[in-house]
Amino acid sequence: MQIHDNPALKAEARNLNFYYGEAKALKGINMPIYDKKVTALIGPSGCGKSTYLRSFNRMHDLYPGNRYEGEIRFFPDNTNLLSPEVDPIEVRMRVGMVFQKPNPFPKSIYENVAYGLRVRGENNKRVLDDKVEHALKGGALWDEVKDRLNELASNLSGGQQQRLCIARALATDPELLLFDEPTSALDPIATAAIEELVHELKKRVTILIVTHNMQQAARVSDYTAYMFLGEMIEFGKTDEIFLKPKDKRTEDYITGRMG
């Protein structure tokens, strides 16, 4: 595939295989992730897109019996994120993640956003105040919550909770932000707000987003990858994937003949 105006690489999967115990869930994936761009992963459920996403912050290390093969190179320092010598915690400090269902911690709004900073040992009130405000603004939530920062996060609406989770991830200035179907539990209005936010965020951070909603992929992403049965079928600029897919299987999925 030919990418003309090649932006800088942020990460690159090289011949990535992944196993849940004996079951092979990812099969030889090669794919670039471009810096300060939004890349969408689409495909029918069970195609491995979430599994692939969760490899970028080594979430699979939390559970026994999971195994990676191959590499995910991370730039500019060209580290292999999957190398056994690399500490998964260090990876997670550089790669943020937003989950399918909003999962605010049982703490105040303020403490939710400050969480990652405290994990890094930051306890200076002034620094925290500043960063929390900045992150909440980045998550487009500041105006709604600035007067009730000490309320429990669980009092917020679903859409607000999801934006809080985005702010929480932003507070620590991640280099790559992973979104795992971030709007699947939200109503259309909250979904639109998140999509707009993703659009805004790519100025600051590289984004990889899993979605089962093709319109969403078309709306928010610069690049799209179509996955099927653990394989990367096609990767390219979003317009090209949607307007003139090269692979028959991609075309079938996009035109709604399967999936």
């Binding site: 912050n57 979430m59 939390l62 915690i89 260090e90 997670r92 400090m93 943020g96 993640m97 989950f99 269902k101 999962n103 605010p104 911690f105 049982p106 703490k107 969480y115 990652g116 405290r118 994990v119 890094r120 989770c165 929480r168 991830a169 620590t172």
Partner: peptide, 21 residues
């Protein structure tokens, strides 16, 4: 598990996740 995953995804250690989340 989603709460724990949220905490681990922020780079927390096990004890920090246990005590703070």
């Amino acid at each position: 598990m989603s709460l724990r995953e949220g905490a681990y995804a922020m780079g927390s250690t096990r004890l920090y996740t246990a005590l703070h989340v």
